[in-house]
């Protein structure tokens, strides 16, 4: 098969939707023996498509959409999630997890590490985020995370995160996804429903999820779809345009941050095509020509993909039974 950029586009969206819906229904009703689905909705494209597929699989009356904001969440997230639920006439609940996170010391533990790097950081007036510099993708080195703080006047400062502070910030922030998972399972068990996971193919395979957080679910209907394909399904399923047009964000740190800035380092449209080429082992020269890149640059990106897959293997592993 010849390698073309368009290779990533689904040409049979209705059939793909039917296939996912049938599998989802069979998995939940027959394999898991649950009678409906709980979906955490954030106003992002992935949870929106997961909810839309769930509605098709089980009917709106067998779905509970749960919004799980905390004090760092963007207000847009709740507004868009509600709009989604209204579109599909799904019952929703809002569970604010700020209190639980305060109980865990999530914010205090995170801020303590930020202050180790920037002593002037005041969590009441400053914002913060962590991310990878885009230039890193062309380096044959693992990603190096930077901490950025934004002062009350909007001035940004960035520094490389030392190992201990990086690990503590990530570990503390992961309380957010794990608390959400815990709340989703509360509602799922209360209703005898299954929890629908929302990660897409990149999140699963590159390890952009929290183990036992957003990676903790009973079934993941879009886990094999590229982001481009998720958008194709969104349009077909009638997801509100504002959600489709929204730039994917992490909505985890106080300063605004795109997923590309935090983790992927490559725009998702380009990443989809490159990952497809990488996964299907297309010849480097053919891919480089089609993508207007050098073979050397492409090789480094593929090495970066391989490293991400390898270093995040731990996240995808189930407990080792001995």
């Amino acid at each position: 098969m010849e390698f073309k950029k368009e290779i990533i586009h689904l040409t049979n969206v209705p059939e793909v939707v039917d296939q996912i819906v049938n599998e989802l229904r069979s998995n939940v009703l027959n394999t898991l023996r649950r009678k409906g689905a709980v979906v955490g909705i954030s106003g992002g494209i992935d949870s929106s498509v997961s909810l839309a597929l769930s509605v098709k699989a089980f009917g709106a009356d067998k779905i509970l959409g749960v919004m799980l904001p905390e004090k760092d969440s963007s207000p847009d997230s709740a507004m868009l999630a509600q709009k989604l639920a209204d579109t599909y006439r799904v019952k929703t609940l809002t569970e604010n997890i700020t209190g639980a996170l305060e109980g865990y010391g999530c914010y205090q533990r995170r801020d303590e590490s930020v202050a180790c790097v920037f002593p002037e950081y005041n969590p009441k007036t400053y914002k913060m985020k962590i991310g990878v510099k885009q230039s890193n993708v062309s380096q044959n080195l693992p990603p190096i995370f930077y901490l950025t703080i934004v002062d009350p006047y909007g001035k940004e400062q960035s520094k490389m995160l030392p190992a201990a502070e990086y690990l503590q910030i990530v570990a503390a922030s992961n309380f957010k996804q794990r608390s959400r998972m815990s709340m989703l399972y509360y509602h799922a068990e209360r209703l005898h429903y299954a929890v629908i996971g929302t990660p897409n193919k990149h999140e699963v395979e590159q390890g952009f999820f929290v183990k036992y957080g957003d990676g903790g679910a009973d079934v993941m209907p879009i886990g094999k779809l590229y982001k481009t394909q998720v958008y194709q399904l969104a349009s077909y399923l009638g997801v509100p345009q504002e959600i489709i047009d929204r730039t994917p964000t992490t909505d985890t740190y106080t300063a605004e941050q795109t997923q590309e800035e935090f983790f992927y380092q490559i725009p998702f449209k380009q990443m989809d095509i490159l990952w497809y080429a990488y996964e299907n082992k297309f010849p480097l020269a053919e891919v480089a020509k089609e993508m207007d890149m050098t073979v050397d640059a492409l090789e480094k990106i593929f090495e970066n993909f391989a490293r991400k897959q390898q270093t995040t293997d731990y996240l995808r592993r189930a407990p080792i039974h001995m």
Binding site: L141, P142, I144, A163, Y166, R307
Partner: peptide
């Protein structure tokens, strides 16, 4: 070191420090 899996992402951080 990275291609031969002597160091991963956290290993690089620790090495820098």
């Amino acid at each position: 070191l990275f291609q031969e899996n002597y160091l991963d992402s956290i290993g690089l951080y620790s090495l820098i420090t």
